[in-house]
Computed example of a mutant assay.
Amino acid sequence: MDIEAFVGAHKGTWDRLEYLVRHKRSLSGAEVDELVDLYQRVATHLSIVRSRSADAALVGRLSALVARARAAVTGAHTPAWREFVRFFAVSFPVVAYRARWWWLGSAAAFYAVATVIGFWVAGDPQVQAAVGTPEEITQLVEHDFADYYSANPAGSFAGQVWVNNAWVAAQTIVSAILLGLPIPYILWQNAANVGVIAGLMGSRDRLDVFFGLITPHGLLELTAVFLAAAVGLRLGWTAVAPGARARMQAVAEEGRAVMSVALGLVAVLLVAGLIEGLVTPSGLPTWARIGIGVLAEVVFLAYVLVFGRRAALSGETGDVERAPDLAPSAG
């Protein structure tokens, strides 16, 4: 496509739409109808440019113009609660669903590393000696590990856990800026910590205490971290291999989708923090505490599978700039 000819043919339309958007509060009835018509036409122009040109500046200009026009056309008629519902019914789960194989790979690698390190620490007294003295290990196993969950008031502890986990997830997602290179190291650090503590607890026959305390909140908490790692790695890989899309376009689309996960994980980690602060240190039987954790994990995975798959099949991507702007075009 001759991009200069295309711009020359349609620049007047874009300028007119921009004028109407800027003066949306004082438009006549005819001008409102013109605004809606031009919005639909320019959305089609955006679709054509995205599919046939690598001009990132032009794509950016038209994307911004169409987004502003969409807000002018529909903003006054879309209740905030509908946007909220759409986010949790479409935007968040579809991005998580599309990253499912990266998600699964992150989880598999984490658990493999944690398991190997756990067995290594549990079976080798020399490794245990390198971690700490016998007295320090006894203090950790017999007191510190369990006391960690009850040292502070439940509400305060839940808040601290939420902030800490949200920070870990945010670090993981932000690492995508560096093509996801720090993410394996972040996962390695966390897997090694889990493996070392599990190994020390196992060496003193206290694995029942370990799993009884870490499972209720740990399932959902680690799942959230794996999801953050997955979308971060996927975004980084998109910068390396964008496929048929222009590199800048692909990174921009995936980056906007990743923000959906970043916001959604705030809610997921809040639930994990509440479980860790209120359920883990509670007086409930171990089976009940673990059952609550398993139930939360199953509900979350089912939510992503059902809502995410449905949204993906309908063509949703989680990119806020793509729907409903990509009108079909022919020729």
Score class of each variant (00 low, 15 high):
L233K: 01
G180V: 00
P285Y: 03
V49Y: 01
A198K: 03
A312F: 08
L222H: 04
A130E: 06
W188M: 14
L301H: 14
V251D: 05
S106M: 09
W120C: 10
L219M: 09
T286K: 06
A191D: 07
P134C: 09
A99L: 03
A54S: 07
N165V: 01
N152V: 12
F87W: 08
R98G: 09
T78A: 11
G132S: 03
V194Q: 13
A296I: 00
A112W: 08
E253K: 06
F300V: 07
V90E: 05
L269R: 11
A330H: 11
A257R: 07
L301C: 11
V66Y: 03
V131L: 15
S282R: 05
R98S: 12
F300W: 14
S53P: 02
L65A: 01
L200H: 04
V7C: 03
L295C: 12
A228V: 07
W14M: 02
L269W: 11
I48W: 10
F92E: 08
L46N: 02
A241L: 11
H217E: 12
G243N: 00
I214A: 13
A5S: 13
L140C: 07
G60P: 03
E316W: 10
W81S: 11
A267C: 12
G118F: 03
A252L: 07
T133N: 09
I214L: 15
I117H: 05
A176T: 11
I275Q: 05
W287V: 13
L274G: 03
I292G: 02
K11D: 12
Q128L: 01
M248A: 15
K24D: 11
A80C: 05
A198E: 05
G243M: 00
A169P: 04
T115N: 07
S329Q: 09
V261K: 02
I3P: 00
V294Q: 00
E136A: 14
G123H: 07
R61M: 09
R98D: 12
A191C: 09
V194Y: 12
V161H: 12
E276L: 10
G277S: 02
Q249V: 06
D325G: 09
A67G: 05
R25N: 11
S203T: 08
R70N: 15
W102G: 01
V268Q: 05
A191G: 10
G12C: 01
V298C: 09
I290D: 11
S260V: 02
T74M: 14
V7I: 15
Q160C: 05
I3N: 01
V21Y: 10
E254G: 00
V299A: 15
P125V: 02
